[in-house]
Computed example of a mutant assay.
Amino acid sequence: MSVARQDIVSEARTWLGTPYVHQASVRGAGTDCLGLLRGIWRTLYGAEPEAVPSYSMDWSEPQGEERMWAAARRHLTAKSPDDLEPGDVLLFRMRDGGVAKHVGVVSETGAVPRFIHAYSGHGVVENALSGPWQRRVVACFAFPLEVR
């Protein structure tokens, strides 16, 4: 079975309007950015690839550990952020010197790229990948397009 990039974007869009709830991953009821990614994975591939341990809002910042980045490397395919395609996963560093702890899914590329993410205070939204967001991108990954 294969997954098309548009399947990823279409599934992400079904989460639009879901309220932001830390550590949740239930479409329509509540999710955070990682929960959105987990929900997309479950719909497209079945069970999640690994159990997600409980995490705090500061997401490994006190230890300086790049836990989210390491998990992305285990299950997604790293690629250049200069070659964005719909369905790619973006990893963001929200402040200088902090760990990368926010993710979103590219929904459109071209002159006005867009991405879908769960954002505290806003829920799941689709935003322009504007300059301030682009400056925070530290890594880009692709979902596996072939299901094993």
Rank of each mutant, 00 (worst) to 15 (best):
L16K: 04
Y20L: 11
Y20V: 07
H22F: 02
Q23R: 15
A24Q: 09
V26N: 04
A29M: 10
G30I: 07
C33Y: 05
C33M: 04
G35R: 02
G35H: 08
R38M: 12
G39Y: 04
G39K: 10
T43P: 02
G46E: 10
G46Y: 11
G46D: 06
A47W: 08
P49M: 09
A51R: 06
V52F: 07
V52C: 08
P53C: 01
M57N: 12
M57T: 11
D58Q: 11
W59R: 03
S60K: 14
S60P: 02
P62F: 09
P62T: 03
E65R: 15
E65L: 13
E65P: 03
A70H: 15
A70K: 10
A70W: 06
A71K: 10
R74V: 10
H75E: 09
A78D: 14
A78Y: 13
D83L: 15
E85P: 01
L90D: 12
L90R: 02
L91Y: 03
M94L: 14
M94V: 10
R95Q: 13
R95C: 07
D96N: 04
D96R: 06
V99L: 01
A100I: 08
K101I: 05
V103M: 04
G104N: 13
S107N: 12
A111T: 11
V112E: 13
A118S: 15
A118H: 03
N127P: 01
N127W: 15
N127T: 12
L129F: 12
P132R: 05
W133V: 14
F141E: 11
A142T: 09
F143D: 08
E146D: 12
